[in-house]
């Protein structure tokens, strides 16, 4: 954190809210040769990965393959030992703080749903809403009519309209997952990182999530980490298989499934 150098909230034009992501050459996210080690263990090992604008990408891989670490690197939670991460052509994510990265338009849904349990469902969405983030603005800010409408729309999409004034802590597990997706939607990110969205969901909920994620891709890029192969097959156009911190295979679901190295990793030796 470098508050004394961070001009956020001082000059509107310098706010990261107004930064445009240059995707004119294709990729939305560009990671090259990323290495992260924890006490000698390489969680990521020369990982190189590109996500195109508007793409829906599924990342699969056995436990410990580095999927979550990869998301940590993108969101600035973990700093890599080496490598480069760019959002669009121009934004070097390794030089930005977690909050800045979030504000330029990367939204993340965590594996374990974390909603603000002591706030109403509506308030959860209002907090996540794209907009100013400074303390002084927060003291006086009110939702505009447009923002209220957006929240209503999102509540509708995630099926929580009836619960909008309940405390989020009282929601079921599936509903919390949905609320968290809703919180991502109101942030209007350009790149959505979704970690195990259907864990603990019923079959019907899973189907609805698949539908929603497919809808979202196109206007924004979506990266999904998931273990549920059925789910991955139902949404994925391109699948990346991670193994021991680097990319093992990439391609359509059927290509990947026929790849002998993938079969070896998944079926064991």
């Amino acid at each position: 954190m470098r508050p004394w150098r961070d001009r956020t909230g001082v000059f509107e034009t310098l706010d990261y809210d107004h930064v445009t992501i240059d995707t004119s050459h294709g990729p939305m996210l560009y990671m090259e040769d990323i290495t992260v080690s924890f006490d000698g263990f390489k969680a990521l090992n020369n990982l190189t990965l590109t996500i195109d604008d508007g793409e829906l990408r599924c990342i699969i891989g056995p436990n410990g393959a580095g999927k979550t670490t990869m998301m940590d690197v993108i969101t600035g939670k973990t700093r890599p030992d080496s490598g480069t991460v760019f959002l669009g052509q121009t934004l070097d994510l390794l030089k930005m703080s977690e909050t800045q990265i979030s504000r330029v338009g990367i939204g993340r849904k965590f594996q374990k749903p974390t909603v603000f349990e002591n706030l109403e469902v509506r308030e959860n969405l209002a907090l996540a809403m794209k907009g100013p983030r400074s303390v002084w603005r927060a003291l006086v800010i009110k939702l505009t009519g447009d923002q209220r409408d957006t929240i209503d729309d999102v509540l509708n999409t995630i099926g929580l309209t009836a619960q909008s004034l309940n405390l989020a802590g009282g929601l079921s597990h599936g509903q919390k997952q949905w609320l968290e997706i809703g919180m991502l939607l109101v942030q209007q990110p350009r790149l959505l990182l979704v970690d195990e969205p259907v864990a603990g969901m019923t079959h019907a909920e899973t189907e609805r999530t698949a539908e929603l994620l497919t809808q979202l891709a196109g206007e924004r890029s979506v990266v999904v980490i998931e273990h549920d192969m059925e789910f991955v097959r139902s949404i994925a156009r391109t699948v990346t298989v991670l193994h021991e911190g680097s990319v093992l295979a990439e391609g359509s679901m059927s290509e990947v499934q026929q790849n002998p190295r993938v079969v070896e990793v998944y079926l064991g030796d």
């Binding site: 508050p3 909050t99 993340r108 996540a128 983030r133 400074s134």
Partner: peptide, 15 residues
């Protein structure tokens, strides 16, 4: 209740 989540939606928790 969830500090890192607040940070992840773009608030500077420290301030």
């Amino acid at each position: 209740d969830a500090e890192s989540r607040v940070r992840s939606i773009g608030y500077r928790v420290e301030s």
